[in-house]
Design a protein around this nucleic acid. Structure first.
Lengths: 242, 242
DNA sequence: GGGTCCTATAATGTATACCTTTTTATCGCG
DNA sequence: CGCGATAAAAAGGTATACATTATAGGACCC
């Protein structure tokens, strides 16, 4: 039973103890396969905690959609939510919707602030590229750098309301993003389109056009979903169609 | 200690026991004033439950934004979230964003389905008007009927992802909606604009234009926020500016 | 031999006990 | 009289015990 420190590669806040963080990590990284039925006692044993914190973590992850009701159940039984391309599309699209709508606000910023944000985003994207260009990028680092780019946009432009929604959407997004990068490589697909789209976001932020910013962000997420779908298809074909 | 049945006027699902429903009701209806500091033992006593389910309900309501961290606190203390016009605007706007984006899907429906939905919405709006036209509308019923109109749109058009987000936004929205109607009356403002906007939604759904549908829904929520803000201003002036 | 009922096991929901930490109030000192 | 330190009270985090219920397996009856 390998207990890794939870927060290292998980850029999420961890309000309650670390039962949530640990369980989140197990699901996001796929250590608990989709469809796996979970029981409070078993998980408590595995995490070395009592049922109480584990139960709270399970309830939260259920609200966030990473755990779903299982069985024909009258009495609640939960399982790890299945992975689904259509759901991934919806998650990516909705992320783009919220992130894009919030980022429209830059159009009312003074030029200097916009430039500062644009520069910060350019640097964040550069750090992402630095990781992505490696022969065998560390998935955790790749994830973290990409997350940091978009998180910067959210932090600076989103209202508390949409920030909260994006936060609750985060775990589901993270789960798909987690193997997005590695899967691209496995499928032999390039990162270049992502670079270009990030660059378009930077340019739009600098220009200050609300429509352009929103369009660029939405396009980035929509296209990312399609890239993910394509990568899954190709990877499945390459490996032999599980 | 008056214990009212929880689900009667609260069109929300109530997964866990009724601690959540009870506490939700207390906050939404204002029985617990904004800013009120809550402790688990006190609430457990008040609700006639033990700390465990109360604690879970408090954690969920905190995720949903109805409870917020209080005090300069190192150790978590929570209080009922303050009411804030700007937050209300963000809640309404984001609701419109998600509901509107989902409803674009009707443009790809067969005509017959669109007509069916349009008719259902027209009837739902009619039931809302029936309540709103009364001299002293029952706030709970007014709330329920208005909620039903929009919920119908969400149920028929939203993806599971945006549905989940709207669901988690629901409590905050409900809190503002709860006194929106009564406040309009208090301020001597008419319901007519709402009728018109609902009608515009119905027409757009029937027509099948994605842009029109989205525009109509967004406008409805944006305008509703402005009406709420105006009603608050007027009511405050009329009563004497608390 | 198959189906149904019953029993036993196990999991969820709730309650309570324990421990740590924080906060507050009181007492003492400057 | 005020400020600080210490002690007591209280609240959050966790663990565990208890009650209820569902499910699975086996035995008995048809």
């Amino acid at each position: 039973m390998t207990k890794q420190p939870a927060g290292a590669s998980m850029p999420f806040s961890v309000p309650e103890g670390d039962a949530y963080a640990q369980l989140l990590q197990l699901v996001v990284r796929g250590d608990l396969a989709p469809g796996t039925k979970l029981t409070e006692p078993a998980l408590a044993l595995r995490l070395g905690l009592s049922r109480t914190p584990v139960r709270e973590a399970m309830q939260r992850l259920q609200l966030e959609g990473l755990l779903v009701p299982a069985g024909g159940g009258e009495r609640p039984r939960v399982a790890v939510a299945p992975l689904d391309i259509d759901e991934a599309r919806a998650v990516y699209q909705t992320t783009g919707l919220l992130e894009g709508a919030g980022a429209r606000a830059v159009s009312e910023w003074p030029v200097l602030l916009r430039r500062t944000l644009a520069t910060a985003l350019r640097l964040a994207d550069q750090e992402f590229r630095d990781v992505a260009r490696a022969k065998a990028p560390d998935p955790a680092l790749l994830f973290a750098r990409h997350h940091a780019f978009h998180q910067r946009i959210v932090d600076e432009t989103a209202t508390s309301v949409s920030r909260a929604l994006l936060h609750s959407l985060g775990p589901r997004l993270a789960r798909y993003e987690w193997f997005h990068g590695p899967l691209l490589q496995l499928a032999g697909l390039p990162f270049a389109p992502t670079y270009d789209e990030h660059q378009a976001i930077v340019v739009a932020v600098r220009s200050g056009s609300a429509d352009d910013v929103e369009r660029a962000i939405r396009a980035n997420w929509t296209n990312a979903a399609e890239r993910l779908a394509e990568a899954i298809t190709r990877a499945r074909a390459a490996i032999g169609g599980g």
